[in-house]
């Protein structure tokens, strides 16, 4: 049977995934829009940086994040000067790590979706008296809707499945930074296969239900996309 600690780990995982996904969408949308529309010469550099987490081992990313978030790191120092404490081994630190780690999974589908919308609908909107911001909200966002679903699902799922980065910067503080994937690892280490089963099965089921739900919804929107 799962213990209270297991539920706590599951709860932290969910909370981390929800908070990270919301932040990812908020940050990823303007970034993806810029990447889809910009003709800047330096776009390739931004694209490469955003895609880095795809190729880097999570431990590399985690190592640098640990340095940056700690009391001597730039982000940690900044945060401390604002009256906070060091970010390493905190939930906030985990959120920062997840957002960076999952960024490409959110930005790329959004960028593709915005590119698929193309210039024409926005030009049409401009001849129908819509200002640039108005066009973005009333035309680009709704037309890119399938991309948002994909981005949210990938961002959420990727955060749930995160292990290496969390281990490096979150440590293993029960009730604070111990997420399900690490709890499972601990159970297996201690040969508690029964409890590992409960948590793993729980994550599996949760992920499946979520994906099925989103794809069912996406099916209904496909009409709009075609």
């Amino acid at each position: 049977m799962p213990s209270e600690a297991d539920f706590l780990a599951l709860g932290i995982t969910l909370k981390l995934a929800v908070v990270s996904t919301v932040l990812l969408l908020l940050l990823g949308t303007p970034l993806a829009w810029w990447m889809a529309r910009s003709r800047s010469r330096f776009k390739f550099l931004v694209e490469a940086v955003v895609a880095l987490p795809l190729v880097l081992p999570p431990t590399v990313l985690g190592f640098y994040l640990l340095l940056a978030l700690g009391s001597n790191g730039p982000i940690g120092k900044l945060f401390e000067s604002l009256g906070g404490s060091s970010l390493a081994f905190t939930f906030t630190g985990l959120v920062i790590g997840s957002v960076i780690y999952s960024l490409p999974f959110v930005v790329q589908p959004l960028q593709d979706a915005f590119q698929a919308v193309g210039h024409r609908p926005l030009e049409v909107a401009s001849t129908l008296r819509a200002s640039p911001w108005d066009r973005f909200v009333s035309v680009a966002l709704p037309l890119a809707r399938p991309g948002f679903l994909t981005a949210a699902v990938l961002g959420f799922a990727h955060t749930i499945g995160e292990f290496g980065v969390v281990l490096m910067i979150g440590g293993n503080i029960p009730g604070e930074t111990k997420v399900a994937s690490i709890a499972i690892y601990d159970h297996v280490e201690m040969m508690e296969y029964g409890r590992a089963h409960w948590l793993s099965g729980g994550l599996l089921l949760m992920s499946f239900v979520m994906l099925a739900g989103v794809y069912a919804m996406n099916g209904r929107f496909r009409m709009v996309k075609s």
Partner: peptide, 20 residues
């Protein structure tokens, strides 16, 4: 004047309706 400030109507070669 920016396009949205010009009192024009524009019919493009393709209908380009808002599909949503």
């Amino acid at each position: 004047k920016k396009p949205h400030e010009r009192p024009v109507g524009y019919v493009f070669q393709e209908a380009s309706l808002f599909e949503h």
